[in-house]
């Protein structure tokens, strides 16, 4: 299955994959900092960044399948795994945080949290 392509060519592909991994992360941070709202420009830019992440993921998988011995490809794979794990930890932390807030002071909840927690939790209040 392994192809013996030109290493420099494969490495250039991995650089593109790396850019496609980093830019969406920066875009996501920007999105979190910007206020929510019907901003079409922000939504479109966000959409493009997420497509870039998928392109980066496809590049990484393609390099790992076609050139499994390429070191840059392995590094890129581990970066994707680390980003995925960090995202999972943040998600679990958000779920726990929502639980603490909902069980605690209701008047302390701000709009940002309540908007996120509604999807995760189904609450009964009496």
């Amino acid at each position: 299955m392994e192809q013996h392509g030109d290493d420099s060519r494969v490495n250039k592909l991995c650089v593109v994959g790396l850019v496609c991994l980093i830019l969406p992360i920066l875009g996501l941070l920007l999105e979190v900092l910007l206020p929510a709202g019907g901003n079409k420009v922000v939504a479109t830019i966000s959409f493009i960044f997420q497509l870039m992440y998928i392109a980066g993921l496809v590049i990484m998988i393609g390099v790992r399948v076609k050139y499994p011995s390429n070191v840059f490809g392995k590094v890129l794979m581990w970066l994707h795994i680390i980003v995925g794990v960090i995202f999972l930890i943040i998600l679990i932390a958000a779920i726990v945080m929502c639980a603490v807030v909902i069980n605690g002071c209701m008047s302390c909840m701000d709009d940002f949290l309540s908007g996120r927690c509604d999807f995760i939790f189904w609450n009964f209040y009496k």
Binding site: L28, V32, G38, N39, K40, V42, A43, F47, R64
Partner: peptide
């Protein structure tokens, strides 16, 4: 590899559909 790719695309696809259907008025996160 295929599962990693497909799970990501299922999650993105399910939200992207809503983004596109709204005419890009909502962000992927929302």
């Amino acid at each position: 590899y295929s599962m990693f790719l497909n799970v990501i695309l299922i999650l993105y696809g399910s939200r992207m559909y809503s983004v596109v259907a709204s005419g890009f008025k909502v962000r992927l996160w929302d």
